[in-house]
Amino acid sequence: MSAISTKARMHFMIFTESFDATVMCRFLARIVGHFDRKVHLIVDRHSAHRSKTVRSWLADHQDKIEPHFLPSYSPELNPDGLVNADLKRSLPHTHQARSRTELAAETRRFFHHRQRQPHVITGYFKAPHVRYILDE
């Protein structure tokens, strides 16, 4: 999972278990640990994002992070979806993973590579169907 910013920052976490509220809370904790100011995180309406566990975690950390939910069925508003598409397009060309461990390692390499490419990260926000206005 990943989070990107209009300032060309990318944070990610690789996990091999199913995505659920526990995984989401781990990711949220990592995100807030990187900043000394309040984080405004735009998320879709995945059930894990809206779960009681996550809502409770957010309530306990409301001074550090505030979620903003996208409208239902609005992938065009989510530039992080382009990160996922980029990952899915890139991985088959670079490696054929034979195990979950290999897939996790290749995914980690992809994200580390993208973190060193700020022009690509800001490009996710400039896609024709993504409706964000950047301060440039």
Rank of each mutant, 00 (worst) to 15 (best):
L41R: 06
H93R: 15
N78K: 11
R26H: 14
K64Q: 09
M13L: 14
A127E: 04
V43C: 09
T101D: 07
L77R: 12
H113A: 08
K52I: 03
K52W: 04
L58N: 02
G123C: 05
P79E: 08
A85G: 03
L91F: 08
H61S: 03
Q117C: 12
L82Y: 11
E66Y: 04
A105K: 08
H11E: 14
T22L: 13
E136K: 11
I133V: 12
S2L: 02
Q117E: 14
E106V: 07
A105N: 07
A59Q: 10
F35N: 12
S56G: 02
D135W: 11
T16D: 15
D44K: 02
V83C: 10
S18R: 13
F12W: 15
A29F: 00
S47H: 06
D60G: 06
S56P: 00
V23M: 12
Q115V: 04
D20I: 10
A127L: 05
M24D: 06
D36S: 14
P128H: 12
I31C: 05
F15E: 15
T107G: 02
E136L: 09
H49S: 05
H119M: 11
L87S: 00
P75G: 13
D44V: 05
F15V: 15
P92V: 09
H11S: 13
C25Y: 04
Q115G: 05
H49C: 07
V23L: 12
T94D: 02
T6V: 05
K64R: 12
H34P: 01
A104W: 04
A85V: 02
A97W: 13
L70V: 08
N78I: 11
H49T: 06
Y132T: 10
I42D: 00
E106H: 06
T122D: 04
K7W: 01
N78P: 03
A29N: 13
F27M: 12
F125I: 09
G123I: 07
H49R: 04
